Simulated assay, not measured.
Amino acid sequence: MRAYYFDDEPTDQRLPHDSGEEVSLDTLSHLGVLYWSIPVGEGDSIPAGVDAIAKERGYKNRDTINVSKEGLGDAYETKIKGFFEEHMHEDEEIRYILSGSGYFDVRKHAAKQDDERWIRVLCEQGDLLVLPSGIYHRFTLDMNNKIKAARLFQDEPKWIPHNRGVETDVNSHRVNYLSTLPPIAVA
């Protein structure tokens, strides 16, 4: 895993978009983003370390998603566009990368919306990433165009994106998320 500020250049979303400004695990943690590195088991099996975290955090269900042209078929282009729309979920988003790689972009909250920046998180095989309920984020593949991930869920599997907008800004999960963040220093 590697995290850095997104450069906002208007080029292919699958490129690194590396601003050269690294982001620490502490910064991600302050945003509620959690990370573990756990080597994948033989044959893409879920290792005991992931099972232990799942049990500790109350993740009862899981499935596997293969985000690639082969894995998504005719839905590929539509899904990739949808994943890259800025959105939030009312549940945590938990992904354990079995193979391939891609980028999760998380929005760093700021006092003014114009000052919010994207933090790009490169996830590769063995990375376990937890995005908190209510955080604005998006996902894209990198230039390899494929990622296989286990998705973990606290309850029944669901993935309902709420695209950013006036209604989403006041969604109770978004408001609760913002209340967990450290105060923002205003200059």
Rank of each mutant, 00 (worst) to 15 (best):
residue 3 A to K: 02
residue 5 Y to E: 04
residue 5 Y to K: 07
residue 12 D to E: 07
residue 17 H to A: 08
residue 18 D to H: 13
residue 19 S to W: 01
residue 24 S to I: 08
residue 26 D to T: 13
residue 28 L to M: 12
residue 31 L to N: 04
residue 32 G to H: 11
residue 38 I to W: 05
residue 40 V to F: 09
residue 42 E to N: 03
residue 43 G to M: 04
residue 43 G to Y: 04
residue 43 G to A: 03
residue 55 K to H: 11
residue 57 R to L: 15
residue 58 G to E: 14
residue 62 R to E: 06
residue 67 V to N: 00
residue 67 V to Q: 00
residue 68 S to Y: 02
residue 68 S to Q: 03
residue 72 L to S: 02
residue 74 D to S: 07
residue 76 Y to G: 06
residue 78 T to M: 15
residue 81 K to V: 10
residue 82 G to N: 15
residue 86 E to I: 11
residue 87 H to V: 10
residue 92 E to D: 15
residue 94 I to T: 08
residue 99 S to W: 04
residue 101 S to H: 00
residue 102 G to V: 05
residue 104 F to I: 01
residue 105 D to K: 07
residue 107 R to L: 15
residue 108 K to P: 04
residue 108 K to C: 12
residue 109 H to Y: 09
residue 114 D to W: 00
residue 118 W to M: 08
residue 120 R to E: 05
residue 122 L to K: 11
residue 122 L to P: 04
residue 123 C to P: 01
residue 126 G to F: 05
residue 126 G to H: 07
residue 126 G to Q: 06
residue 126 G to C: 11
residue 127 D to N: 08
residue 130 V to S: 09
residue 132 P to R: 09
residue 136 Y to C: 10
residue 136 Y to P: 07
residue 137 H to N: 13
residue 139 F to R: 00
residue 140 T to Y: 00
residue 145 N to H: 07
residue 146 K to R: 12
residue 147 I to C: 01
residue 149 A to C: 08
residue 150 A to R: 03
residue 154 Q to N: 12
residue 155 D to N: 11
residue 155 D to H: 06
residue 160 I to T: 15
residue 163 N to E: 12
residue 164 R to C: 10
residue 172 S to C: 04
residue 176 N to S: 15
residue 177 Y to P: 09
residue 178 L to P: 06
residue 181 L to Y: 09
